Simulated assay, not measured.
Amino acid sequence: MEPSTQDFYDGMAESYHLIYEDWKRTVTNQGKFWGQWVRSRFQSLGNGRIRLLDASCGIGTQSLGLAQYGFDVTATDLSPNSVERARQEAEAMGLSIRFGTADFRTLEQDVAGTFDVVFTADNAVPHLLTDEDLLSACRQFYNKCAPGGMVIITIRDYDSLIRERPRATPPRIFDDGKRIVFQVWDWSDDGTTYTTRQFIVQDHLGTWKTESYTAVYRAVQRSELSNFLQLAGFQRVEWFMPEQSGFYQPIVTATKIEA
């Protein structure tokens, strides 16, 4: 039986910040990056509050920073444990964010209202493994966008990865060698999906502790995701690669044209 995406993130909720060198600094940096990047595409709003749905908020890596940057943020995730962690972090930071548990495929019934931006970063969409689920999610993103709004999605560069099929990510070493973070990837025979095992290894007073969490991803190529977005009704599908945007993953945006 394939590992559950919810179990993956529920299990990691208390440790997720450890995959970053300094998670709180990352929150601030992401808020600044995305705040500027999104506002540059909504210049007509000036400094007004942009209504944003972070549909894969996790423990709040982007939503906390965007709230700091003045966005009107609603944050949801499939993982109740992650949402609760994000809620606690927001409270500690004095931020006002509406939180909830929601699936990409059921946003209409799980989340009230529409938004200027529907947002999902950090390769969350490729957890959907079938064409039906990907199209369903894109339709939900479309329905949650206000007229003139846009969806913003970031995923790994699968156009390259599907050719190379790497077996692991390079280890990242933090805390003067006392914390090591890496992933091992087990590809399917046809290269369309892979199982990730996320490892967090830490030195606790001379004893090394290992945490591992498992999830499955689809290697969604850019043409595939563009097609699903267009089938859902979006227009002006645009891709921005890291060398162009400054973000570490490819970004795709698509617009819901005003009636």
Rank of each mutant, 00 (worst) to 15 (best):
V73S: 08
V73P: 00
T74Q: 10
A75I: 12
D77E: 00
N81Q: 13
S82T: 02
S82D: 07
S82W: 08
V83M: 09
A86G: 13
A86C: 14
A86F: 11
R87A: 12
Q88A: 15
E89S: 10
E91K: 10
E91D: 11
A92G: 05
A92F: 00
M93S: 10
M93H: 07
M93I: 00
G94L: 15
L95P: 01
S96P: 03
S96I: 15
I97A: 04
F99C: 04
F99K: 05
A102V: 02
R105F: 03
R105I: 07
L107G: 09
D110M: 04
V111Y: 08
A112R: 07
G113H: 02
T114N: 09
V118P: 00
V118Q: 06
F119I: 08
F119G: 10
F119D: 14
F119H: 09
A124W: 01
A124N: 15
V125M: 14
V125L: 15
P126Q: 11
H127A: 05
T130M: 15
D131L: 02
E132W: 03
D133Y: 00
L135F: 13
L135P: 01
S136F: 00
S136A: 14
A137R: 07
C138Y: 06
C138P: 02
R139G: 12
Q140L: 04
F141R: 09
F141T: 03
F141P: 14
Y142I: 07
N143D: 13
K144N: 03
A146L: 11
A146Y: 01
P147F: 03
G148E: 05
M150I: 11
V151M: 02
I152T: 03
I153F: 00
I153Q: 12
I153A: 08
I153S: 01
I153V: 15
T154M: 00
R156W: 04
R156D: 09
D157V: 05
Y158P: 02
L161P: 05
I162H: 11
I162Y: 06
R163E: 13
E164D: 15
E164M: 10
R165C: 07
R165A: 09
P166K: 14
R167P: 07
A168L: 15
A168F: 09
P170V: 02
P170Q: 01
P171E: 13
P171V: 10
P171Y: 03
P171N: 03
I173P: 08
D175Y: 04
D175M: 07
D176F: 06
G177R: 00
K178H: 13
F182T: 05
F182H: 12
Q183D: 15
Q183T: 11
